[in-house]
Structures are given as structure tokens and as C-alpha cells.
Design a protein around this nucleic acid. Structure first.
Length: 313
DNA sequence: CACTTGACCTGTCCGC
DNA sequence: TGCGGACAGGTCAAGT
């Protein structure tokens, strides 16, 4: 669920809070896969090796490169968050579908606040989805929560982060000035035989687009998600380029989309879905032509579209 | 090479 | 009310 606009929103929030913070200690949820009982977080004491699937670095690495380190910068590349530390190591974080990074000020007694989608969690942090807690010297905290445990955190030397396999193959950032409609066309044309939706979701073509914004951009571009790229002329691809960038920017301005779990660094939900034209609007009238929005399956994903506005070529 | 399916997980919702 | 199954969607690996 966190796609480019959501991760960008989290990044901006963390940037606001984390710069200069010094790590004092780390708490971990040490449940192994298959454990069902909730256990409290365990303070990493460095006497025993504690590894978790989500945060697999050794205790020695944590001790040497995280404890006492200060936060220098917070960055985003594609859907990945990067927290640069003063030890020349970087926390590389992927939220996958249900991951959250939530900051809690030292004097914050309210936890999530009233905005959290799960009512039972309001006012509680850590909660049952908390996997890792970073405790700072000023008693503020950063929580990594992840209900479905697909997300992960890796500690990597800052200079080596971009050598990770994912970054080696990931495509360009769609919102940077240097990303032109010409380059967009050229990259899509390399996948001429593929369906438009599959190509938009392919991170090696364009970085950061996921299911929500693929559906939205295809709708406003008047392109059926199953249309093969080869069937689209340059005019259509240029339209798609503009609409994709537009929808990503509008969503960033709205603080991203909250479908179920997503919250920003303040634990607050995003409001983009109130602007969505097709996503999660199955059965409702198309805002363009009033025909009913349908939901189907394309490229293995739930896909929302209007069959009048988006005609398969 | 293009595409599909399964795996990784938990929580929610729907139908019986 | 309980219970099984489908579904949610980011990425990778394996299979067609």
C-alpha cells in the first residue's frame, strides 16, 4: 500500500523529527514465524544474539553502527526509505503493504491520536504490530510497525546502499525534473508486448508506482489497463506521462492514501482516496461519464476501471 | 522474454 | 455465532 506518495510523506515527516537525534537503545519483537502469542518488545542487551526476520542484522552490527549514532539525513528512493547515520551506515527500510514508521515525541502521552484507522490502537504505542522501536537519547521514539510482517529493515554501509540488487535495477524517479516524457516513452516501448498496467507496476521501468496510482493514471489517461503498449501511440503515452506525474503529485499534497493501514510519521492518515476517481470505487458512477466503475483482475492485481472512458485498443 | 503463480503474513469480511 | 475461504497488495523466485 505504501507507494511513492506515501513513502515520500513518511520521509518528510521523519526529516522533520529525526535529524540530529541520537540512538540510545533498540527494542525488538522477537516472535518467530508461527508464534501466535504476543510478546512484549525485548530490549537488545548485546549479551545474547537476537535475530528477527524483519531486522536481521547481528547484535554486534547494531551495537557498532546504530547505538550512539546520530541521524544525518532521511531519503527516499522508489518505495524505500533511507535513514543515514553518523557511522556511515544507513537503515534501509521497505514498508511493503502494511509497514509504518511512526515517531513519538518524548512528551507525547497520546500515542497515535484519534486519526489511527484501528480504533483499538488509539493512544497505544508500541502496539501489537510493533516490530522494532528505536529509542533516542531525548526519550523520543521511532516505531516500525508492520501487521503483515512483509516489511524489513537492513543496516547497510551508506556507500554500498545503491549496490543492493533492487537499486541496481530500479527505474527512474517519475517526479524529478530530468525525467522527460521522451524517456518515459522510450522505457515503456521496451515492454511493447506487455499490458499497460503490468508495465506501470514494474519497478524496473518506473520507480514507485503501485496499484492505486496505476489504476488512477490509466483512468484519467483513457487507457484500458489490458491495452498492450504497442497499441498506444505517442500521444497516449505522453498523456499517461502527464497524468501519472499529476496523480503522484496530487497525492503527495494530500499526504498519500490511507486504504487500511497507512499512516504518516505522526500516525495520521492520508486523504488522497477522497480524490480517487476509480480506486475502491467499484459499483459507483464514473465521475467523468457516470457509467459504473468495475473491479476486475489484471496482471494478478485488483484493478478498477470505467469501460466507457477506458476502451481497450 | 512475457506472463502467471506461489510464497511471505495477518486481519477483515462474506457466505453458509 | 462460528468457520472456512477469499482477499488485500510489494517484491522475488520458480514455473509455464
Amino acid at each position: 500500500m505504501p507507494e511513492l506518495p506515501e513513502v515520500e510523506t513518511v520521509k518528510r515527516g521523519l526529516l522533520k523529527y529525526l535529524i540530529g537525534k541520537q540512538v540510545k537503545s533498540i527494542d525488538l519483537d522477537t516472535r518467530k514465524t508461527g508464534d501466535t502469542d504476543f510478546k512484549d518488545l525485548v530490549r537488545l542487551d548485546f549479551k545474547n544474539e537476537i535475530t528477527t526476520k524483519i531486522f536481521p542484522n547481528t547484535s554486534a552490527d547494531v551495537k557498532n553502527f546504530i547505538i550512539d549514532a546520530k541521524v544525518l539525513d532521511v531519503r527516499r528512493r522508489a518505495k524505500v526509505l533511507l535513514i543515514d547515520l553518523s557511522t556511515d551506515y544507513t537503515l534501509v527500510i521497505h514498508l511493503k503493504m502494511t509497514g509504518q514508521m511512526v515517531f513519538k515525541k518524548a512528551d507525547d502521552k497520546t500515542g497515535f491520536g484519534s486519526g489511527h484507522p484501528n480504533k483499538s490502537l488509539v493512544g497505544q504505542l508500541p502496539d501489537r504490530s510493533t516490530r522494532v522501536a528505536f529509542n533516542f537519547t531525548d526519550n523520543s521514539k521511532l516505531f516500525f510497525n508492520d501487521q503483515r510482517k512483509f516489511g524489513w529493515i537492513r543496516l547497510i554501509p551508506t556507500a554500498e546502499v545503491m549496490n543492493m540488487p533492487f537499486f541496481q535495477k530500479v527505474g527512474p524517479e517519475p517526479l524529478v525534473d530530468t525525467f522527460t516524457t521522451k524517456e518515459f516513452r522510450q522505457r515503456l516501448r521496451k515492454r511493447n508486448k506487455s499490458m499497460a498496467k503490468a508495465v506501470l507496476l514494474d519497478q524496473s521501468v518506473i520507480a514507485g508506482v503501485g496499484n492505486i496510482y496505476a489504476d488512477e493514471a490509466l483512468h484519467t489517461s483513457g487507457i484500458h489497463p489490458e491495452t498492450r503498449i504497442i497499441e498506444l501511440n505517442d500521444k497516449f503515452l505522453d498523456k499517461l506521462y502527464r497524468e501519472l506525474r499529476e496523480v503522484l503529485q496530487v497525492s503527495i499534497d494530500a499526504g498519500g492514501s490511507t486504504d487500511k493501514n497507512y499512516v504518516n510519521a505522526d500516525g495520521k492518515m492520508g486523504s488522497y482516496l477522497t480524490f480517487a476517481k476509480v480506486f475502491r470505487r467499484e459499483g459507483k458512477p464514473c465521475l467523468n461519464c457516470t457509467n459504473e466503475i468495475i473491479k476486475t483482475r489484471v496482471a494478478g492485481r485488483g484493478t478498477h476501471l470505467c469501460l466507457v472512458c477506458q476502451v481497450k485498443i
